[in-house]
Design a protein around this nucleic acid. Sequence first.
DNA 1: CGAGTATTTGATGCAGTTCAACGCTCGTGG
DNA 2: CCACGAGCGTTGAACTGCATCAAATACTCG
Lengths: 224, 224
Amino acid sequence: MTAEEVAFMTRFKAGELSVEAGTQLLMEGANSPQLFTVLSGMGVRYKTLEDGRRQVLNFVFPGDFLGMQAGIMGEMSHSVDATTDMSLCVFSRSEVWSLFKTRPERAFDLTWVAAVEQNFLGEALSAVGQMDATQRIAWAFVRLFGRGQAVGMTEGHTMPLPFRQQDLADSLGLSLVHTNKTLARFRERQLASWADGLLSITDMRALAELAGIDHEAPEIRPLI
Amino acid sequence: MTAEEVAFMTRFKAGELSVEAGTQLLMEGANSPQLFTVLSGMGVRYKTLEDGRRQVLNFVFPGDFLGMQAGIMGEMSHSVDATTDMSLCVFSRSEVWSLFKTRPERAFDLTWVAAVEQNFLGEALSAVGQMDATQRIAWAFVRLFGRGQAVGMTEGHTMPLPFRQQDLADSLGLSLVHTNKTLARFRERQLASWADGLLSITDMRALAELAGIDHEAPEIRPLI
DNA sequence: CGAGTATTTGATGCAGTTCAACGCTCGTGG
DNA sequence: CCACGAGCGTTGAACTGCATCAAATACTCG
């Protein structure tokens, strides 16, 4: 970025925010005036059905941009909860339009982010729609670890993954019980083990094979 | 649009294209130099898994914009087939960037389209992940009919729906057989009937209830 | 008229859901 | 300091929605 760009982004930036684990950052249907970029911490994007069931759409990593739906369409179509303590960079929604008018490169990045997210949702839909439980979990692990690598959260073949089994189950359209049993089998089969908030990949090749993913091209997500 | 804007869009537009039913318009992984707006006809967006299974991500309606992933990210993440004969407005991918530089309103529309699509995929993921077969089909019918209304394809409670049962099955993560049997039950129960390429809604209220959709706010999708 | 495609229907089996119960850890209050 | 409850992970048992297999019918088209 040029100095002038930095100045603009500084103006765009409205402040920083720290929230503790469990906080709801954005709510489905709400017209949030704020947009966030995640500086640290992790969270969950999800939709709730009227009968209480929940679909986790994606896990939130550092660098993720939250609230674009509100910024573009005026209303969030899903909620976002902080799973761990998080710190966020806050932008004001009203600045989005000026971004398009005066910062075409930044606006392009925003669209890029939207396209990447779309891409991911399409893949998730394919996983949930077509794969069995083992394949789905393998897919999730490969994707999560890939995202962890992209933001430097990994150490060797481990990375922090501070979610509950219920969260993973809700993201893959599986029951908690069956997710638990499948995870146990992953440990037995020496594929991966996830316990105490730490994901440890034992056999990435086998996981990628199960998930039907050839070769992990490093993911590129521009920061906003 | 102003006259000047029309002039720009005309330059942006590279031509028109007619294809016949069955043509593959875009292919997963390909770096298409062309983007399309659908003028007429219908199609299917889908991803293919290496074992041959297929996930239909969405059905293509007139007014839809195709190829944004290629335009923004450089590569399509799914394929698009024409189900019926189609006519398309063709844009050149290289013009996308100039759109962002000189037409912020149009660029904003593009991002809007991306956000709407993201929204839809999230809803589809929830349906496939959390609902049973009956609910999923009800959801699909409500959404399809809503989109049909938005583009004026409906007549009373009917609209053309020129797809195969296999396409619907692949979009909802169901087997063809089970989809067929569930459709039969929809007819018996006087909810909706779909035969010979014509969808006929008998009891929209019951369908929306099953699908967990309150009230159908008319969908807004800007044209590109 | 035969071949290919789409829809329909019946029978069988299993992956995954649901129900239920137990253990562990941690925080809270008496 | 211990009792208690809440939240999460784990495990066993029984049931079922849906997949799979199989086959018949109907249509279209060259």
